[in-house]
Design a protein around this nucleic acid. Sequence first.
DNA 1: CTGAAAGCGCTTACAG
DNA 2: CTGAAAGCGCTTACAG
Lengths: 354, 354
Amino acid sequence: MKKNIETELVGVKEIARRAEVAIATVDRVLNNRKGVSAKTKEKILGIIKELDYKPNIMARRLASNKTLKFAVLIPKVSEETDYWKAPLEGVKNAASEIKDYGIIVDIYFFDQNNKLTFSTEAVKILEKDYQGVILAPMFEEESISFIQKCYIKNIPYVFINSDIDEQNSLCYIGPNLYQSGYLAGHLISYLISEKQKILLVNISKEIDPHHHLLRKEEGFRAYFNVNHKENDLIKIDIKETDYLSVKQKIAEVLTQTSIDIIFVTNSRVSSVARYLEETGQSHIKLIGYDFLEENINYLKKNVIDFLICQKPQEQGYKGIMALYNFLVNSSAVDKQNYMPIDIITKENYKFYKN
Amino acid sequence: MKKNIETELVGVKEIARRAEVAIATVDRVLNNRKGVSAKTKEKILGIIKELDYKPNIMARRLASNKTLKFAVLIPKVSEETDYWKAPLEGVKNAASEIKDYGIIVDIYFFDQNNKLTFSTEAVKILEKDYQGVILAPMFEEESISFIQKCYIKNIPYVFINSDIDEQNSLCYIGPNLYQSGYLAGHLISYLISEKQKILLVNISKEIDPHHHLLRKEEGFRAYFNVNHKENDLIKIDIKETDYLSVKQKIAEVLTQTSIDIIFVTNSRVSSVARYLEETGQSHIKLIGYDFLEENINYLKKNVIDFLICQKPQEQGYKGIMALYNFLVNSSAVDKQNYMPIDIITKENYKFYKN
DNA sequence: CTGAAAGCGCTTACAG
DNA sequence: CTGAAAGCGCTTACAG
């Protein structure tokens, strides 16, 4: 029971003393609650400003003793790619960091090959009582339907990994997909000469007209338009994501046309790499996405030339933290938080932090 | 005065009740203080384990009400380069993040062109009462003298930006300098052909035999040895760091020998870039270090081809956090924390986070 | 070796 | 609209 000797230290007590009111009244002003006369409020506000008082966060949290619950809705790690391991990791790290501050994080998984599972999980979330939601809004229609319900219930939501504009989300944390595609275009322009042919490949079961992969494609195409590059560009969508289907589709194109470079718009580049390696065509240049073990292996073997990575773990981490800062610290949150566009090669992958 | 309804929630009170002792005794066991009989201690430990009790960090900090002071000793931003702005920024960010937890961070600056200033500041730090120190041990002899005194006083110290082995530091946070030079070697091998000539340049007033720049040089040379590259390598140390001196020294070499690529081992690459630009020799390839405005400008203009960056801001941030985690959370700290080796080009600098 | 009680700086019912 | 007091989950002297 050491007493606070530094009496000049400012707290609610000191403010109350100076304002000649009770501590509770100071607290009301501090937390912007009503039930304080304008006059008293003004007086207290003045003293707060004068003393440059900053509340003690720990004391506040300890006393308020309340618990916030966040729900996370992201794809489960699929058979074709374990990309989503990383955001999940980030979410877990953030969760354990703020656990002591009374935040509980529940994670819900959907199957990115099945829109229905998204909606099913969304319903589960709505049934419970969450104060905040983080989601990967992979399916536009289903996502909008979900977040509109959140909006009505006044629950803030954060988009990660891909964005939907104009949907009143608290913020977006993830790549600038268009720019990411644009950069891929630029990289590729280094690797090929004027007349060489490019094959662009989207591999995803669900590719509706709003699918986020298409934004990378737009950026990619834009690069060639803006810079007046005349390379032939062939594009295919592969909606069956198992290896055999990918193999078959790619083989089809490659037998018909001579392709010099392939750009795969997501982490499933390893399927294409596998095909190229198996058929001894690894002279065809290959660019794709994401720091996954399989991809790195093909990078090491020179089958994949570049991988573009966008800090998936950080996306999960920052998603939770954005909600936390907004809800608990009521601090301002950046509406857009774009990840860096990292270029991974055989040379620097060892030091990369995903 | 809401009461805790979830009585199953575990706290010291509950542990004390079960162990039939006072809360103070539980606290003694929890904090490993003496004055508890072996028998009681064992009993309490058993209950703690059984209940999987985790102390509430906020309550602990609030109650203990103590303040820790950290000292940071880093170079001041110099005229030749503002590299050190970034670590400073990181230190400040970390400091403001943990200010509420009773951590005070004082920053001391030395002149990296003057060893004496290092020692002077070190003395100032030792005179005060710090619980932890973060330093850039740029001058080996002076640094060792300083940290030995810290060691005696039982003050933990963290090295950032460059390391000194076997000095009982709490940890090192910064680049793997050798690997960083090695990577530069690899990059350069892409840019030149067999017989072309390389100029390696160290620009620093103080280059004693232990200077950290020399480790980059070692790594760089190692790349060429290991890979049996036979390129000629000329090396110069420039100890006068103003532009005119750099210009003169470089000019001297370039008039005598035909050089194809220049590798500058630190952020002062912009001086060389300026010279190359002014003399219309920007066809000579140039590689250097650090994401500084001046460097980026030369990158944009194709005078600099690559910049290697190693998250200087993060170094400062993590330095503080390492001390904090060790001292406050008594959590384990990684002995070595190597930064990624980022390759910055004209194409991706816009999205880089320093 | 052990315990009762005050205190850290806030918030929360409750009474007026 | 305002205040007195208990409480959040710990730690800290102090008394025994």
